[in-house]
Computed example of a mutant assay.
Amino acid sequence: MAVRGIRGAITVAVNEEAAILEATERLMRSVIEANEIEHEDVASVMITVTHDLDAVFPARGVRAIPGFDLVPLMCSNEIPVPGSLEKCIRIMMLVNTEKSIRDIRHIFLEGAAALRPDLNSQVK
């Protein structure tokens, strides 16, 4: 078994609590489903947001998923690089898994699909 990092990102249209929570939960559920993850196998989840998203901690959206109430979560701001994608939520989930690095499915939704088209094309 190895610890693997699984990436994901999604954009939202507005800096509002409901939009951020819904998008974060949707992204997490998509990553969980695509990679057949059990919450007991998750070591931690790092969540970043761009500077224009500050209405709520996105970790609350993850905590809405059954079993994730005890998973260590951390929120942070993304580096504000000029011209970078706006209103974006990113995750890095560390998971104990038997999957090889090539079997991991990274998920990029909405406008975030443009971030890593090379990885997003791997989604089954």
Rank of each mutant, 00 (worst) to 15 (best):
S30Q: 13
S44E: 01
R63C: 06
L27E: 03
E40A: 14
V49Y: 03
G8A: 05
L27P: 02
E36I: 08
F57Y: 12
V49D: 04
D52W: 07
E38M: 09
V12T: 06
R29T: 13
S44M: 04
V56A: 14
A64K: 15
A64Y: 09
H39R: 09
E36T: 10
L27F: 05
T50Y: 04
G8F: 01
H39V: 08
E36M: 08
R60F: 14
V49Q: 07
A64H: 12
S30T: 12
A43I: 14
T48H: 07
D41C: 02
A13Y: 08
S44Y: 01
L27D: 03
G61F: 06
E38W: 07
L27A: 05
E33F: 11
I47M: 09
V45N: 04
A64I: 08
A13N: 11
N35R: 06
I37L: 07
M28G: 07
I47T: 11
M28K: 08
T50W: 03
A59H: 11
A43N: 10
E17F: 02
I20W: 04
P58G: 02
A19D: 05
E17Y: 06
R29F: 07
M46D: 12
D41K: 01
E16K: 10
A43R: 12
T24C: 05
S30A: 15
T11N: 05
N35Q: 08
T24V: 05
T24N: 04
A55W: 01
T24F: 02
R29L: 15
V45T: 14
N35K: 06
L27I: 07
I10S: 09
V12R: 00
A43F: 08
L53I: 03
R63T: 10
V42F: 04
H51T: 10
V31D: 01
R29D: 10
A18N: 12
V62P: 05
V12Q: 00
V31E: 00
L21C: 02
A64E: 14
A9Q: 00
V31W: 02
R29E: 15
A13L: 11
N15D: 15
A43P: 04
V31R: 00
M46Q: 12
M28D: 05
E25M: 13
V45W: 03
A9P: 00
D41I: 02
E38C: 08
E33M: 09
A18T: 14
V12A: 04
I20Y: 04
H51G: 10
E33D: 13
D41Y: 02
N15A: 03
I10P: 07
V45F: 05
A18D: 14
I20E: 03
H39C: 10
A13P: 00
A23P: 00
A34K: 14
